[in-house]
């Protein structure tokens, strides 16, 4: 019991550090990428909340999926997600990731992102403005601090489900493990 207490408090400290320091990998194939430069640079400066860009998936904590995903880019997104290190979060950005948005009857794009990857939260809008992005990321920070952002555990627990959905649209997916 004592051991559990120590483990729990240590986890809380790590959660606290994680919520203050988030390295974001923005997957910019959709048009949402255009809202990110103002969010990162002088006008809205997200680095004051401890959120900064990451150069590679290995160094990233947060995967920001900006906009629609064709089946071709979904495959790369899955590879990217599986390269990230464990406390990792996915945020869907724009209405394309929620229900397909304006691509909803396209033959070649997926409609719901969270059938393929465990999404922590969505930022709705087409496009969401920098204020909305910052608001969403602040909510994500709160979720991480409270220990509610457990997408990577959901992915582990429901691996079958996610793999089935991925293979249904992509055919064969190359697995790292």
């Amino acid at each position: 019991m004592n051991n559990n207490f120590v483990k729990g408090s240590w986890q809380e400290i790590l959660d606290w550090a994680q919520n203050k320091s988030i390295n974001m990998l923005h997957y910019c194939t959709g048009c949402g990428a255009i809202e990110l430069p103002p969010t990162m640079t002088s006008r809205y400066d997200m680095s004051r909340f401890g959120i900064g860009p990451a150069a590679t998936p290995r160094q990233a904590d947060l995967l920001l999926v900006t906009g629609y995903l064709s089946t071709k880019t979904l495959r790369r997104l899955i590879y990217t997600y599986e390269q990230m290190q464990a406390p990792k979060f996915v945020v869907g950005f724009g209405s394309c990731t929620i229900n397909g948005g304006m691509y909803w009857d396209s033959y070649n794009t997926i409609k719901q992102l969270d059938k393929y990857l465990p999404v922590e939260m969505y930022i709705a809008g087409c496009m969401p403005r920098p204020e909305a992005i910052l608001d969403g990321l602040l909510k994500l920070k709160k979720m991480i601090a409270d220990g509610e952002a457990d997408g990577y555990q959901r992915y582990q627990d429901n691996l079958e489900y996610y793999h089935q959905n991925q293979e249904a649209v992509l055919g064969e997916v190359q697995r790292t493990q």
């Binding site: 400290i13 790590l14 550090a17 994680q18 203050k20 320091s21 640079t41 002088s42 400066d45 680095s47 004051r48 401890g50 900064g52 904590d61």
Partner: peptide
């Protein structure tokens, strides 16, 4: 760059994380 910038102790948090 006319930004506010992260807090001075940000690298400590980064290392801990």
């Amino acid at each position: 760059q006319k930004r506010y910038g992260p807090p001075v102790y940000q690298p400590y948090l980064d290392v801990l994380k």
